[in-house]
Simulated scan of single mutants.
Amino acid sequence: MTGKTARQCSSWVLPSLLAISLALMAGCAGKASTASYSASNTGSNTGSNCYAKAIPTAGEGGLAWGDTLSIARKKSMDNCIRYAGRSGGTPNTCQVVLSECKN
């Protein structure tokens, strides 16, 4: 009797699991992923030769690309101040620690 019950149970378990997993995948497929921080927030590095990194004494820093060294440094300082403030750090202590241009 238990063998017959097990076969009856297995006949609907597999299709049910398959249907549930397909429904879950279909529900997630339409949602775009969102990141709280993306490299695109600092500006596109397409065609930009120079980059700079600024960090505070506490909190998150900022990396940025720019056409010139001064633009990259300015953007990285702005990003550092923004991200340090958001992360509970010290925005007023941001300093550019690295800046250079690619050849």
Rank of each mutant, 00 (worst) to 15 (best):
M1P: 01
M1L: 07
T2F: 04
T2R: 01
G3E: 01
T5E: 07
T5S: 01
A6I: 12
C9A: 12
C9M: 09
S10Y: 07
S10N: 09
S11Y: 04
S11H: 03
W12L: 10
W12E: 02
P15E: 08
S16I: 13
S16D: 03
L17G: 11
A19M: 08
I20A: 10
L22S: 10
L24Y: 02
L24G: 08
M25S: 04
G27V: 01
C28N: 07
C28H: 06
A29N: 01
G30K: 04
K31C: 08
S33F: 09
S33Q: 07
T34F: 00
T34A: 00
Y37K: 11
S40I: 15
S40D: 12
N41E: 15
T42G: 12
G43C: 08
T46K: 10
G47T: 11
N49Q: 14
C50W: 14
C50N: 06
Y51T: 03
K53N: 08
A54Y: 05
I55T: 06
P56M: 14
A58E: 13
G59A: 09
G59C: 09
E60T: 10
G61F: 05
G61K: 01
G61N: 06
G61V: 04
L63D: 07
L63Q: 09
W65Y: 09
T68D: 15
S70C: 00
S70R: 02
A72K: 02
R73D: 06
R73K: 15
R73M: 11
K74L: 07
M77F: 02
M77R: 05
D78S: 14
C80D: 04
I81D: 05
I81E: 08
I81Q: 11
R82A: 14
R82W: 04
Y83Q: 10
Y83T: 12
R86F: 04
S87M: 09
S87N: 03
S87Q: 03
G88N: 01
G89Q: 04
P91Y: 15
N92K: 09
T93P: 01
T93R: 05
C94T: 13
C94V: 14
C94E: 12
Q95H: 13
V96R: 09
V96A: 08
L98A: 15
S99E: 14
S99F: 11
E100S: 13
C101M: 03
K102Q: 11
N103R: 09
